[in-house]
Amino acid sequence: MTKTLPPRARQSAYTPNDDLSGSLPSSIRMADEFHREELLMEKLGTRGWGRLLYFQRCYSQGWGENGKGQPLSPRSVEALFRFLEALPTSENKPSVFLTDEGNVELGWENSADAAVQVEFTPDGAEYFIERGTEGTVSHSGLAGLAIQLAR
């Protein structure tokens, strides 16, 4: 008797032999993924980590008032990671937000108790320091901006 299988996505053209195909136990993750999660935990705390994960997982197209919210920008997320790599760790963890344009935004207070905000855009970042300046930087300026804003 002929058995008909449903159509398969060509995610892979092969299947390893059963003995070779066991997946990683759930307690083991690849180093890159682990490093990124560790970075989020260290710089943003568990709340920031959870919020970013939630935005990544759930905020696809059509969210928000009148369905105008844009999906989370992958370039914005990558820019966030570049910024966090250079941002010194602080007890005062930044808040994490999602803008209607689909960008990640951080907000915290600096040592002078002035509000500091950074919105990561597909082209770089927009920053704001209360009673100070606001401006933009390209992706190559993110590390310098992190050090500048941490003062």
Partner: peptide
Amino acid sequence: RAMWTDKYDGERFSASAFKGSDLS
């Protein structure tokens, strides 16, 4: 202006809630 989970994290509001044009 309605403030949602994405604009408040339990500690701070996001200024982006009021940024831009044609805000609802």
